[in-house]
């Protein structure tokens, strides 16, 4: 059973990695904690739902639409709200992004009401057996896509000019400017990419779980725990952290009941803060990668 739970947890962790990597990337570049990050996932899930309800689009087809939409929403949020609070005191940043988060979830609540919405696909409950382990098809697909996207992101950051500009800005904002990098544009790109990653995660989650207006809080909490566990601003840390949290979630939900999984995150959160405050991969804050 433990093997079954561990493997399911790792598959789930793959999706969490997409969410957490976006959050950590945005933090690394802009030094801002994006409290709207969970709501971006929520918006992505509702969009996937709407495309399914309105046009009968399979979620995996929405994979080509929703992340793009989230990218544009990310650009808007960056230009209208986040850009104005970059470099300002923490309280100001928190007020701005928490306020926007409340606005988004309440707007969705007003429109869709509080009901759970889900997407039923023919493959939602399909499983395949590998040795002693049974795995859901959507879980496997989600993990596979997450892995590919993560790899693409890594190559993008490592080899493209925009990717290098993002890393340079993370490591030294003034020097980046002195290289001729338009740091403002880097901020916008970073926020938009983080949002698109949340959108991909949202599409992958939709065949697995229903959505509701305040679901963003749950994913924000998970992403926070992952990012603190892995080390603020560290992308490898976020990947490893996400897999660990995925396993913690499935194991604790099975043995303690699903109501306890959030308690399990917090135990981990506190343990990390006590034993290794910089996180597993953290190095002096967030200058890595």
């Amino acid at each position: 059973m433990l093997l079954q739970l561990t493997v399911s947890g790792i598959l789930l962790g793959g999706i969490y990695a997409l969410i957490a990597v976006g959050l950590t990337l945005i933090f690394g570049v802009m030094r801002i904690v994006n409290f709207t990050h969970g709501d971006l996932v929520m918006l992505g899930m509702y969009l996937t739902y709407l495309l399914y309800k309105g046009f009968g689009l399979d979620p995996y087809i929405s994979l080509f639409i929703v992340p793009l939409a989230l990218f544009l929403i990310g650009v808007l949020i960056q230009k209208l709200v986040v850009q104005r609070v970059v470099g300002r005191p923490h309280e100001v940043q928190i007020f701005a992004t928490v306020g926007l988060s409340m606005m988004l979830s309440n707007a969705v609540l007003a429109y869709f009401k509080g009901d759970y919405r889900s997407v039923q696909t023919t493959y939602s409950t399909d499983t395949i057996q590998i040795g002693p382990v049974f795995l859901g098809v959507p879980q496997i697909v989600a993990f596979g896509i997450s892995a590919v996207i993560t790899l693409v992101l890594f190559l993008f950051l490592k080899f493209t000019y925009t990717g290098k500009a993002i890393r340079a800005t993370t490591q030294n904002r003034i020097s980046a400017t002195l290289m001729g990098i338009d740091v403002r544009r880097v901020y916008t790109m970073t926020f938009a990419i983080g949002s698109a990653l949340a959108g991909i995660a949202a599409v992958l989650l939709m065949p697995l779980y229903p959505t509701y207006p305040s679901i963003g809080e749950a994913y924000l909490l998970i992403a926070f725990v992952v990012v603190v566990l892995g080390g603020l601003g560290s992308i490898p840390g976020a990947l490893v952290g996400a897999l660990i949290i995925g396993v913690v979630e499935t194991v604790s939900a099975y043995y303690l009941g699903s109501g306890w999984k959030q308690a399990a995150y917090f135990v981990i959160f506190i343990l990390v803060l006590i034993m290794r405050p910089q996180g597993l991969f953290g190095q002096r804050g967030a200058e890595q990668l």
Partner: peptide, 23 residues
């Protein structure tokens, strides 16, 4: 070339140089 060098510490020498040619 700013005071105190201000390199990108987690990049290689080559990556630092290449970023110089960003524009």
């Amino acid at each position: 070339v700013p005071e105190g060098r201000q390199l990108f510490p987690f990049m290689t020498v080559l990556e630092n140089l290449e970023l110089g040619a960003y524009s």
